[in-house]
Design a protein around this nucleic acid. Structure first.
Lengths: 151, 151
DNA sequence: AATCAAAATGTATAAATATGCAAAAAGCAC
DNA sequence: GTGCTTTTTGCATATTTATACATTTTGATT
């Protein structure tokens, strides 16, 4: 569906760039050949439960709502699920395979979850690597992510 | 200073009521005899780093930015500091004395901090009670709060 | 394919928010 | 106090976002 794909792109865009306004988002989406208007974006943003937060430079930017304040919106969760193909462990790492181009967004998402044992995330085109302190923690994180995906 | 007092009132208002718009906030402030315009509120909100999140009923309301996403804004922290008079332990409880009328706001704030050992908070007019699992946890929470206030 | 129902989107505009600029208020030094 | 600087605020308005309504698209059923 075009809509899901577009919303997934929105999540990706806001996790990579500092998007200040919906018009800016429209422009970025046009560049990625999603031809939509601001009105549609406004609706997408509401559905995804995105918020505007202040950056260090005192400008507003769109962001995914953090987990402690409020549950991640169902819509976000669904998109997250669709993008993750597999979750595997390797020593003190958890490796996620994702749809091409969505790894950045997924990595950002994992960061947002603020799981205690996650030390950090890096990502490429279709792979996210989560670093934990030890093998046991990697296992815990994998469990946790599986739980979230199973919701 | 009138400004700090007003901003403190704003934090209190948004923690107690679901404030959907700045105009609504202006009205509430007027009722509390703070006579200001929407423009000023807009600036206050920016300074406090407040955000708009979706409620369960799909309406937007103002909220304090959560701790995991981003540090609580300096401004919020300052106001928090000014409102807390003392922090004491009693068994598995931590008891905060606050300025009259600000306990609700402070309690909300403590919730936002998402400290692990905090099981829950209740409050009256000028007292916040934090419940923890045991005496040791109460001590840890007290330590943590003192750290935050000392920042 | 034709028909209907539901969902998604665009257009136009209402509603909400941010901000440039000028005025007022608050500090501060003398 | 007076004069000067800095901060805060209001007014007017630009900018940004949400939404009512109409239209288009999608999907299912026959």
């Amino acid at each position: 569906m075009a809509r899901n794909s577009r919303q997934s792109k929105i999540l990706e865009l806001i996790s990579v760039k500092e998007i200040e306004t919906q018009e800016e988002l429209v422009a970025e989406l046009k560049a990625a050949s999603y031809d939509v208007t601001q009105a549609t974006i406004s609706r997408d943003i509401k559905e995804l439960g995105l918020i505007k937060i202040l950056t260090d430079s005192k400008k507003y930017k769109y962001a995914i709502v953090s987990s402690s304040n409020q549950a991640v919106s169902n819509k976000c969760l669904n998109i997250f699920k669709e993008c993750v193909i597999s979750i595997k462990n390797a020593m003190n790492l958890v490796v996620l395979k994702t749809l091409k181009g969505t790894a950045g967004m997924v990595s950002n998402f994992v960061d947002q979850l603020s799981i205690n044992s996650v030390l950090g995330c890096t990502f490429g085109e279709d792979t996210v690597m989560i670093i934990t302190a030890d093998i046991e923690d990697a296992y815990l994180v994998q469990q946790k992510l599986n739980e979230i995906l199973a919701q």
